[in-house]
Computed example of a mutant assay.
Amino acid sequence: MEEYVYIDGKKYRRGYTTGSCAAAASKAATYMLVTQRKLESVNIDTPKGIYLTLKPENIEINKEYTICSIKKDGGDDIDATHTMDIFAKAEMIDRVNEGEDIYVTGGIG
């Protein structure tokens, strides 16, 4: 993403939030778990309506779970998570008689 925003006449390169990274990593990990195929990129729409195409990294795929990460890019307004890998793990679990098809939880961190 090479978008810019102008603040007080100054040009700043936009980045994306840690939440966008987490959403993209979760989407990618889930897709790769179901398909058992590596993704080169994943697309998400942000709450502001910005379309992002991000690259999953640190990919680990097997039958029980998939892990991947998205590298955080804070743009010109960097924060403490800038350049960190934001991870997600999708896993198949036995949930007999619990009435839910998909279960989302938070991880460590």
Rank of each mutant, 00 (worst) to 15 (best):
M1A: 08
M1T: 10
M1V: 09
M1K: 06
E3Y: 10
Y4S: 12
Y4K: 12
Y4Q: 10
V5M: 10
I7D: 08
I7Y: 11
K11L: 09
Y12C: 11
Y12V: 12
Y12T: 11
R13F: 02
R13L: 14
R13K: 13
R14K: 15
R14T: 12
R14V: 10
R14Y: 00
G15L: 05
G15F: 01
Y16L: 03
T17L: 09
T18Q: 10
T18L: 09
G19V: 06
G19Q: 09
S20W: 00
C21R: 08
C21I: 09
A22I: 07
A22E: 09
A23Q: 02
A23P: 00
A24R: 07
A25P: 10
A25I: 11
K27E: 08
A28P: 13
A28D: 13
Y31A: 15
Y31P: 02
Y31K: 15
L33R: 05
L33C: 13
L33N: 08
V34A: 00
R37H: 14
K38A: 11
L39T: 11
E40T: 15
E40Q: 14
E40W: 04
S41A: 14
S41G: 07
V42S: 12
I44S: 06
T46A: 04
P47Q: 01
G49V: 14
Y51M: 13
L52D: 13
T53D: 14
L54G: 09
K55D: 10
P56C: 05
P56E: 02
P56D: 04
P56Y: 00
E57V: 15
E57F: 05
N58Q: 02
N58H: 05
N58P: 00
E60L: 13
E60A: 08
E60K: 14
I61E: 03
I61G: 03
T66N: 05
I67H: 06
I67T: 15
C68Y: 04
C68P: 11
C68E: 08
S69T: 01
S69K: 00
I70G: 04
K71G: 00
K71S: 01
K71L: 01
K72I: 02
D73F: 11
D73H: 10
G74F: 01
G74W: 01
G75A: 08
G75I: 07
G75T: 05
D76A: 11
D76K: 06
D77A: 13
D77E: 14
I78L: 01
A80D: 13
H82D: 15
H82N: 15
M84S: 07
M84Y: 07
D85I: 00
A88Q: 03
A88P: 05
A88G: 07
K89A: 06
A90G: 05
I93F: 02
I93A: 01
D94Y: 03
D94M: 01
R95Y: 10
V96C: 01
V96H: 03
G99H: 04
D101P: 01
D101W: 05
I102R: 00
I102S: 01
V104W: 00
T105S: 08
G106A: 06
G106T: 06
G106H: 03
I108C: 04
I108Q: 05
G109R: 05
